[in-house]
Design a protein around this nucleic acid. Structure first.
Lengths: 124, 124
DNA sequence: TAACCCACTATACAAAAGTATAGTAATACT
DNA sequence: AGTATTACTATACTTTTGTATAGTGGGTTA
């Protein structure tokens, strides 16, 4: 049985263990806001230069892109790599964790699809 | 192979299918903001009256609780049930979809735990 | 040497989200 | 009659988040 479901079966008065709350908070840091998820998705699909991201994440301004990339870097989701060629090449690459985030996106998509089926059926 | 990973393997220039985007958006509607996830978590653990939620979701004001419950109801995540007893009893119960949301929370906790292990190891 | 591309940064502003505090309406309890 | 409980609502405010628009600095190309 999974982590959280296990918890649900526990004593109703018990608190959620601190490490689970921290883990959830970390995950929310990658999801929260308008842009982080689209950026991570774009990087999963291989667009990794600043300009590529500007083009592929619809209507994001350079200010927001810059800001979000910094936060994702701080949170260990991606790495900024500078290649000292001429012209200089800067790439944003997902870390191992960043790549694993596909699992979360997947769970989200699956829930969303199933939810739509449910809503259809029950007519709410 | 999972929905999204499958996509990553596809043509890099292809767009994300619309239904996946919609599904993701639905899921984000349950996650976004400061309070929805704690409320859903509390309901999964069985606290389902307004007052219970006020006590169990730390520091939420009645205004926010009311607002979030309405949105979650509109999105088909929970149902508001009025029992015409005296005194009247009002319960908020997760729908089937709402209960399934434990899967997403689970994926999030798992990613968060694994991410912390990764960050420890690589020392970033 | 002028225009162009890349990768941003700066400033000001607008909109969305959340907080603080108080109040309401229905019923029950003493 | 007065206090308590449940389930909220109303108003005003602050904070956070995101937008618009312009500009910078290094290099490259014509």
């Amino acid at each position: 049985m999974s982590d959280f479901r296990e918890l649900i079966e526990m004593d109703k008065e018990a608190q959620c263990p601190r490490q689970y709350v921290l883990a959830l908070t970390d995950t929310l840091n990658v999801i929260s806001g308008k842009w982080k998820l689209p950026i991570v998705a774009a990087l999963l699909r291989g667009r990794n230069r600043f300009k590529d991201l500007q083009e592929n994440v619809e209507k994001i301004t350079p200010r927001m892109l810059s800001k979000e990339l910094k936060e994702l870097e701080i949170n260990g989701v991606l790495e900024r790599k500078v290649y000292n060629q001429t012209p200089v090449l800067i790439e944003y690459q997902l870390t191992a964790s960043g790549k694993n985030f596909a699992n979360v996106i997947d769970a989200m998509i699956e829930w969303g699809l199933e939810h739509r089926r449910e809503v259809m059926e029950t007519g709410s």
